[in-house]
Write a protein that binds this DNA or RNA. Sequence first.
DNA 1: AAAGATAGTGTAATGTTTACACTAAGTAAT
DNA 2: ATTACTTAGTGTAAACATTACACTATCTTT
Lengths: 230, 230
Amino acid sequence: MKNNHPDYHNTFSIDAVIFGFDEGNLRVLLIERGEEAFIGKMALPGNLVMEDEDLDTGAARILYELTGLKDAHLEQLYTFGDVNRHPLGRVITVAYYSLIRIKKYKLQPKISFAKRAIWVSVSEIPQLAFDHNIIVDKALDRLRGKLRYKPIGFELLAEKFSLSQLQDLYESILQIPIDKRNFRKKILSYDLLVELDEKQQGVSHRAAKLYKFDKKRYEHLDKLGFNFEL
Amino acid sequence: MKNNHPDYHNTFSIDAVIFGFDEGNLRVLLIERGEEAFIGKMALPGNLVMEDEDLDTGAARILYELTGLKDAHLEQLYTFGDVNRHPLGRVITVAYYSLIRIKKYKLQPKISFAKRAIWVSVSEIPQLAFDHNIIVDKALDRLRGKLRYKPIGFELLAEKFSLSQLQDLYESILQIPIDKRNFRKKILSYDLLVELDEKQQGVSHRAAKLYKFDKKRYEHLDKLGFNFEL
DNA sequence: AAAGATAGTGTAATGTTTACACTAAGTAAT
DNA sequence: ATTACTTAGTGTAAACATTACACTATCTTT
């Protein structure tokens, strides 16, 4: 079962782990594969890289073709290169990951390589093609690690959010309870949130104030050596 | 200059950034290349991966062949895949890094691909072949980041070391001054160092007590959710 | 008007980090 | 054997950060 397919000789691919957050659930973007190997199985969006294409460029292209997503800020995660990870030959894959706002995008595969693209809660991920379950686990580890010391949670929320929504995100991704007063005190102390003149709409209880993340200010402080930590 | 060499068609390589520490200097292991491209230039130890070889296995093999080093604990760093990073064709490279005790190993290339292997202080790294300066910079960033929240400094020191040597290592890699009393208080508070019944030998001043790192205990605490931080 | 739901708020106790300077032990030179 | 030199080794008080903890405010629904 090794190196026996002409198109899969000594070549490389990209797979993307795209996280979203929705109704208190962390979700991953999966496609249903429309081609061999693993036709019909769920998998991460991924495909072969072209020969005249930088890795980062290829990652953006492949994500767009398979899901319709554009402009996600992809970061490299890890490279998986076990000899037998692909049944049709030697393919190493460079995994990327990204955090996006689910509602900002409409999923729509551009090529039949993906039959459809869907958001799946991380607690309900099925058995995936290739070693993709391992890749998702690695991405989850990275996300959890990074969430504690970089202000990246905002990328998963709507632009305007309440402090409770933010706390809910941290609690649900890190799987720890957080004290409400201490959470607010700490997150506000960094002075990275801008309080808006606006409240939640359409909730059947007291509406919360909305905030947005001051990215400019964070980047400024970051350069000065400031360290975020939740 | 692209994809015009039959051996370099759509293929991948591994490069290793091996750090050592010596006389207050952080050093990187470099080879002098004995083959094209960049013959005669200094470069990271690196070579093409074989088709029937896992990445991790290939990394260990290549490091051994080019430097004589065995059993270094290699960790994946990042994958570099710009189209034009290699002048003879499309080669993506998976970079690995490792921290080792310089004195534990004798450098001795096993194949002529490397004319010689030497330790170079990070402050004196020349212009290297390919994009290897960028790879070294990335490894340095990773090392500095990791040093703060994982007890990895010990891998660079002799098995038995004094607290001053350890402090010197932190100060010199992180390029910050550290208060001696606070440093000792903190590092000892983790209870990860075993005080030995032994002192420094052959120094022309008061000899320091020697310690060793209790790796077993660290791994145990790590599993329980303990977080090291300097 | 009452019940239900979530938002929003302060303080005291505990633990951590920081800043800071002298004595102890050994070697080398006279 | 005394002195000078070099690095090892040590404690405390003040500032700061973290934790634990419970009630009132605001809005909607009935």
